[in-house]
Nucleic acid binder design. Structure first.
Lengths: 201, 201
DNA sequence: AATCTCAGCGTACACTTGTACGCTAAAATA
DNA sequence: TATTTTAGCGTACAAGTGTACGCTGAGATT
């Protein structure tokens, strides 16, 4: 049982996932890439697709998981930077913007399927974002004087703003991006301030 | 020149637009409704579609305009309610939630095409949202002690939060919706507070 | 060594899609 | 009244889709 077989299967499976991610772009969303195109790019026959996924839906959900994983890894990295003496807001925003720049297709998937046509997709993305939010809420709760409930609402608002700014960032040049980022930072400060006012200890 | 001809044309044009809106739903977005389906529902032959729109893109942009119009009318209505003595935040949120309930397909269009695959669509939606934001910013600037720049950033953040809450509202029952709305109101208060702190006069 | 498993292939089929082309009848215009 | 314009239709076609079905050959199992 050397697993040559299983190993190869895993390999083409990953090839399918990567092929699908590669076909995402500003003008191509998951719902308009076809099984055949994905199979073609992965270098297998269309019908072989079914050896790996029940249908495109199942592939998509797997991709959402993968994107969520990337996002959480990113967050851990941001926390490390913060622990070693960075500003919380600036570091987080900068880290997120790097995510959008380097993993734009993963971000695009989350962004679009968040309001897409499949309830399962929407739920999956919502779950990933909730993880993200809960971790931030936990951080806020322990690191700032802040009521638990308010910490969550604060985190939720912040995540929404950051996500939306990320979406806008995809369409803008670096000049606009700088302004956008600055506005975002201010808006996050508003929330931190406001939350401290209502929910501070 | 009674215009019987032009009148009828306008009528089927509107029928096409409505047919398209009717086909939008939780599981059907604009990008996956077809010219033929729209024509079928509007009661004309597929090829007759071209007498009214160059392609589906043109139809879609028209729909975005229409949805934007609905949104602005709604806002005017909210301002009236506020002027006659309602709380700003509560009234606005309530009005918006009614929009989502009664014109959910218009909202869905804006929501999805905001991050869709057509740059023209994204720009069109962004324009509508910017109108919305600018009017709110203007209101904040005149009605509250608030720096112009901060008024805009505040308005922008608020609109984003309201929009996102609306998106979530589409998938939830009335129980969850009540909680969601309450959280949203708090978050808007954060922003108002925070903005007042940094940008108040 | 004999048997089984199964990833990948090719063929085939029934659909749906956008749209080119030419016709018709009714409204508009002259 | 004679002529022009045009909204809507039917036919036709090429392209692309998902997927059912049966085969093959190489790894895995016994």
């Amino acid at each position: 049982m050397s697993g040559v077989r299983a190993q190869q299967k895993q390999k083409t499976r990953q090839a399918l996932i990567e092929a699908a991610f590669n076909q995402l772009s500003a003008e191509h969303s998951f719902s308009n890439i076809s099984l055949r195109e994905v199979a073609r790019e992965a270098g297998i026959a269309p019908t072989s697709f079914y050896r790996h996924f029940k249908d495109m839906n199942e592939l998509g959900l797997t991709m959402v998981d993968e994107a969520g994983l990337t996002l959480r890894q990113l967050m851990r990295q941001a926390r490390r930077r913060i622990a070693s003496g960075g500003s919380v807001i600036n570091t987080s925003v900068q880290t997120f913007m790097e995510f959008i720049d380097t993993s734009s297709n993963q971000f695009r998937l989350l962004l679009r399927e968040r309001s897409g046509t499949s309830k399962a997709f929407r739920a999956a993305v919502a779950r990933e974002i909730k993880h993200f939010t809960l971790e931030l809420a936990h951080y806020l709760e322990t690191e700032t004087p802040c009521d638990k409930n308010h910490a969550y609402m604060q985190a939720e608002a912040m995540v929404i703003l950051v996500f939306n700014a990320g979406a806008d960032a995809l369409d803008q040049d670096s000049q606009q991006l700088a302004e956008l980022t600055e506005r975002l930072v201010w808006q996050l400060r508003y929330i931190a301030r406001g939350s401290a006012h209502y929910g501070g200890h």
